[in-house]
């Protein structure tokens, strides 16, 4: 079966689009102070920030999976106005400037926040300025990407698989765990990748809600921002390291998760 040829204008625009993406990356690579990448790579601060970035983004993705998949299931089953409202609420963090998201997190989970104040008074728990705060900030900003992807997967899914499972005597939980979830794997995977990537690059909400402390809340994007003020070459070196690690993980995970690329 041969596919229709791509019209020339579409190809031209696609090339322009690709160039638009690649030029800044090329700039980063061409202008990179390669002499500094080595020292930056072995610097203990880099390892600390990179480790923290990976820990926070992976944890945020895990939290988003646990909370986001059920949310997507509920979203996909709703109709009409309720659906529009729920969907708008879910996607709000995508349009909200992340810094505003950070302030909103303060108002919810800070010492004076709706949930944070009782927590603080009852147990002395303070969430802001902790690694947990960085994870919360990343989850808040990144989870919508997962929810949207999984909900899309659910809506385009062939629901006869679930019906077949029910007719075979499987209750709702068994249908969800044994049939719905495995069939959603591609959507969950792409959603998790988007979510993770967004969490990894998160800056605004994190610096607002979690602050910037090396080893505790200073992820790579924060370290890059701080470095940009004093030593731009170091910032570029750090950016390159983040880029390389992200690429390696994305390419490596794809085969493992989806079986075939």
């Amino acid at each position: 079966m041969s596919q229709a040829r791509i019209p020339a204008p579409v190809l031209a625009l696609a090339a322009a689009g690709l160039l638009f993406f690649l030029l800044p990356l090329a700039g980063l690579i061409v202008r990179a102070p390669w002499g500094q990448v080595g020292p930056a790579l072995v610097a203990p601060e880099t390892a600390t920030a990179l480790g923290l970035s990976l820990f926070c983004s992976v944890t945020a993705t895990a939290v988003a999976l646990v909370l986001g998949i059920p949310l997507a299931v509920v979203l996909s089953r709703t109709q009409g106005t309720l659906r529009s409202v729920l969907r708008a609420l879910t996607t709000l963090p995508m349009v909200l400037p992340p810094v505003v998201g950070g302030v909103a997190l303060f108002l919810a989970f800070g010492r004076r926040g709706l949930v944070g104040e009782p927590l603080h008074q009852a147990f002395g728990i303070q969430i802001p300025f902790t690694t947990a705060a960085a994870v919360i900030a990343e989850t808040f900003v990144a989870m919508p990407f997962l929810v949207i992807a999984v909900e899309g997967g659910l809506r385009s899914m062939d629901h006869r698989y679930e019906e077949a499972a029910r007719a075979l005597g499987a209750g709702s939980w068994r249908v969800f765990a044994r049939v719905t979830l495995p069939l959603l794997r591609p959507a969950i995977f792409s959603g998790a990748v988007l979510c993770w990537a967004r969490a990894l690059g998160e800056f605004g909400a994190t610096i607002t809600f979690a602050g910037n402390l090396p080893g505790r809340t200073q992820t790579i994007p924060l370290a890059v921002y701080v470095a940009l003020e004093t030593r731009p070459e170091g910032a570029i070196a750090l950016s390159l390291i983040l880029l390389a690690v992200s690429l390696a993980i994305l390419i490596g995970m794809r085969d493992r998760w989806l079986g075939s690329p």
Binding site: E163, A167, L168, G169, A170, S172
Partner: peptide, 11 residues
Amino acid sequence: LTEDRRVGLVF
């Protein structure tokens, strides 16, 4: 419910 009916469904 479908799962409690003991009906077989072939598509």
